[in-house]
Design a protein around this nucleic acid. Structure first.
Length: 555
RNA sequence: UGGGUCGUCGCCAAGCGGUAAGGCACGGGGUUUUGAUCUCCGCAUACCAAGGUUCGAAUCCUUGCGACCCAGCCA
């Protein structure tokens, strides 16, 4: 994916695979998979996993599947599946195969029968509550269920009747028979099947028993011929169970599970439960709200797939729990947009400027470069006329130290245009500045003025030619770096995460701006048309990120 | 007081016994019709701590200390 892979040191997973390949493990094949549960939208943390799994497949000329881990129909939906497919593709990846754990329900059932026949699984009638009690604690061993030594014949009969729907939800559960005294709690006879009469988004009502993650995941990996099953750190304790299940089913291949640290990004949360809560309780406008750390949100905010891939490459892959600063993500999007975004001018807080010595009805069509460094990106026409609009902030009655924009009696360069001088400040009855009377120097178009230096350059638009626009300035959604650590993460929501500017004016060339195309509004930041709310005649732009020297906020 | 994992610059992260890469951030020069970009320079005598092995240790050993994860019929 990147052109400078040699600059990026191999992460520990690549090292393991390189080593495996050297030993000719798996016949020299490398197969990974990205296994999301379709119970929410993908977020930046998933992007890390996606880039890792698909990246490894590319690096080693292997394959990467997209597999939905759809074993808990209560929380899952087709909408989420569709969004996940869309997001993975948008990020720029192509899966070798698209599968669902539910594709394997019949096989999974068969392997469960095999375990029962081998005396390695039993049907338990203990209630959920009792099972919890019997499990013991972190420091005390568990107790065996009275049903643990049920005969194989009875187990078989009961399990078949579980499938047949003869029992109520929760009445029985199929458990792996491992070791109730294991110091690893996951090995204390984990449940592998539960009875749940829930309509499944893909299998409908064909099943009333559903397999659990630990049992399903390893077998699904094996069925697909996955060689390296990459997951996050919290599954480290589950690896013995992953291995146990596959060790009992010798007809199956045995992928290697490798764990890495999940992404933690400052000022964001990536808990699906909490993201879901933000959406449901309307703290944001939806899963694709530009403030959301979801792929859909980042996309709507104007992030590019390339910038996200670059980010995932920069942060590295290790087993260390770490926090990534927002600055890294911002750097990645700025780098991409600086190179590729066309420049334009937009005035967020307009201040009227009348150029007294410019002809009343005259319009000058200036040709301004779309990119200061990449002239191959062409030029655009920007009309100039007697009345222009500049940013209120670009004029100061009492200039702070080092201020280099417009002041009364001072000069400033209008970007791509003339140098003007402010001769008079007009105020209203309340003392507010409502207009500036200026004069222009006709001999400064494309050249520096004679005998003096003009340091400042400001952006502008022609009043009569500019277009009205709504501009949405987004800031970080949370006030604290680790909202997840708060008692209630909702209290950490930044009340000023969205600042809407409804009376901005943008240059005429933006009339046909395309959604998902980033623009740099010179001197103010990177923006893109809002794909949802922008309509002809009412342009809406989202700020992706400010120019350097700000956060995801800071005007 | 059980088990698993991790401790290298403010934040990431190379390093795999031969004498601390790189990126982000930050500070300072230069260029610039964006206070952007670009560019140059600076930024860990030091690798959680203390012992030990070795000619030589961030890398090996020992003992501490700190952090994270695990007691769903969630994934």
């Amino acid at each position: 994916m990147s052109t400078n892979d040699n600059l990026v040191p191999a992460n520990f997973i690549s090292q393991i695979i390189t080593h495996d390949l050297k030993e000719h493990k798996n016949q020299g094949k490398v197969a990974t998979r990205f296994p999301p549960e379709p119970n929410g939208y993908l977020h930046i943390g998933h992007a890390k996993s996606i880039c890792l799994n698909f990246g490894i497949a590319t690096e080693f000329k292997g394959t990467c599947n997209l597999r939905f881990d759809d074993t808990n129909p209560e929380k899952e939906s087709i909408e989420y599946m569709q969004s996940i497919e869309r997001d993975v593709q948008w990020l720029g990846f192509e899966w070798a195969g698209l599968y669902h754990a539910s594709d394997y329900f019949e096989q999974l059932y068969g392997y469960a029968i095999e375990l029962i026949e081998k005396g390695l699984a039993y049907v338990d009638s203990l209630s959920a509550e009792q099972i919890r009690l019997y499990r013991g604690t972190l420091t005390e061993p568990g107790k065996e269920s009275p049903d643990r030594n049920r005969s194989i014949a009875d187990n078989l009969d009961l399990f078949q009747r579980m499938r047949a729907g003869e029992f109520a939800d929760g009445q029985y559960v199929l458990r792996a028979k491992i070791d109730m005294a294991s110091p690893n709690i996951n090995m204390r006879d984990p449940a592998i099947y539960r009875i749940r009469r829930v309509h499944h988004q893909r299998t409908g009502d064909a099943w009333c028993i559903y397999p659990m993650y630990d049992y399903t995941h390893c077998i699904s990996d094996a069925i697909e011929g996955i060689t390296h099953s990459i997951c996050t750190l919290e599954f480290e304790d589950h690896r013995p169970l992953y291995d146990w299940v596959l060790d009992q089913l010798p007809s199956l291949a045995h992928p290697q599970q490798i764990e890495f640290a999940r992404l933690q990004l400052e000022y964001t949360i990536v808990s699906k439960r909490k993201l879901n809560q933000l959406v449901m309780e309307k703290h944001v406008q939806g899963w694709d709200d530009p403030r959301m750390p979801t792929i859909a949100g980042l996309r709507r905010a104007g992030f590019t797939p390339k910038s996200i891939r670059d980010f995932c490459e920069r942060i590295g892959v290790t087993k260390q729990n770490s926090w990534i600063e927002m600055g890294v993500l911002e750097y990645c999007i700025r780098e991409d947009l600086n190179e590729n975004a066309l420049r334009a001018m937009a005035v967020l807080q307009p201040l009227r400027v009348v150029i007294d010595n410019y002809p009343d009805e005259q319009t000058l069509e200036l040709e301004i470069s779309n990119h200061p460094q990449r002239h191959e990106l062409g030029k655009r026409i920007v009309p100039f006329s007697k009345v222009i609009l500049i940013e209120q902030d670009d004029f100061a009655e009492i200039p702070p130290p080092k201020f280099k924009r417009l002041i009364e009696g001072g000069e400033v360069r209008l970007r791509g245009s003339y140098v003007i001088k402010c001769n008079e400040v007009i105020k209203n009855a309340d003392g507010q500045i409502i207009e500036l009377r200026c004069s222009y120097d006709p001999d400064t178009l494309g050249k520096n003025p004679e005998g003096r230096k003009v340091k400042g350059v400001i952006h502008w638009v022609s009043e009569q030619h500019s277009l009205p626009a709504e501009i949405r300035l987004y800031d970080r959604l949370f006030k604290v770096p680790a909202p997840d650590n708060e008692e209630n993460f909702l209290d950490a929501i930044n009340p000023d995460s969205l600042h809407i500017i409804s009376s901005a004016r943008v240059e005429a060339s933006l009339a046909n701006a395309q959604a998902e195309t980033g623009y740099q509004f010179e001197r103010t930041g990177y923006f893109c048309l809002d794909a949802q709310d922008s309509v002809a005649g009412r342009l809406v732009f989202n700020r992706t990120v400010s120019l350097r020297e700000g956060g995801w906020g800071n005007d």
